[in-house]
Write a protein that binds this DNA or RNA. Structure first.
Length: 210
DNA sequence: ACATTAAGTGATT
DNA sequence: AATCACTTAATGT
């Protein structure tokens, strides 16, 4: 595990900090599809993503989802960052998009390391900035893009984080994540297929327009 | 062969 | 873009 940690983070953190992370962090392997964080759950740890991808979702009172963005290797969660500045309850839901490997760091260490290591402070601030940017992008997508454009972007993002042109999913699942109905997704997918941007199969979509 | 689940489609709002 | 109602296709038992 130290190898993976060093490999992905050595250019960011000084050696002593890596040692501390190694000593304190808990490595966790998450199978695809399982939940990492639920809305309302207290945040006790800060995750550093070593391998795989997570998807971050918002949920309404009826349990209906809306995908915000994907996280990849080297990313951390903005929610955890903001929780240190006050409330410690999660406002979002995180699921493993692929099998993933995380290092969990107790949140007390976050503030401690902020003062101790400049590389940590830098990392936190930069993470915050890039999450904020991603959040704005998500808002733009939802507010300004039509459903067909949103769908294509979704397929491309999903293909990217999975590093796989074949997506194994159903129209119903996509509809759920984009917060629309299955019929709409089926129609738009059909349209994209006619435009030769994708190929449709049962439980499987090939993304051509990467 | 039958049941179940995924996907396609016309019509209506 | 959503919903209904229905059809067709694929897959599991």
């Amino acid at each position: 595990m130290l190898a993976a940690l060093t490999f992905h983070y050595q250019h960011l953190f000084e050696a002593e900090l890596l040692d501390e992370i190694h000593a304190i962090g808990i490595v966790k392997t998450i199978p695809q599809g399982s939940s990492i964080m639920e809305i309302g759950a207290p945040i006790l740890h800060m995750p550093l993503l070593l391998e795989g991808a997570l998807k971050i979702l918002r949920e309404d009172e009826n349990g209906e989802e809306l995908l915000l963005y994907f996280l990849e290797r080297g990313d951390t969660c903005a929610m955890t960052l903001s929780c240190c500045l006050g409330n410690s309850i999660s406002e979002i839901k995180a699921l493993a998009e692929t099998d993933a490997k995380l290092i969990l760091i107790p949140i007390q260490k976050m503030t401690e390391w902020m003062q101790k290591y400049s590389s940590w402070q830098e990392f936190i601030l930069q993470s915050y900035q890039s999450r904020m940017k991603e959040m704005l992008e998500a808002i733009d997508t939802i507010a300004f893009l039509k459903m067909d454009e949103r769908l294509l972007k979704y397929l491309q993002d999903k293909a990217m984080v999975n590093q796989e042109e074949f997506l194994t999913t159903t129209h119903q699942e996509i509809a759920y994540e984009l917060h629309t109905s299955r019929v709409v997704i089926s129609r738009l997918l059909k349209k994209l297929e006619n435009e030769h941007k994708i190929q449709l199969h049962r439980n499987r979509i090939k993304v051509i327009a990467l």
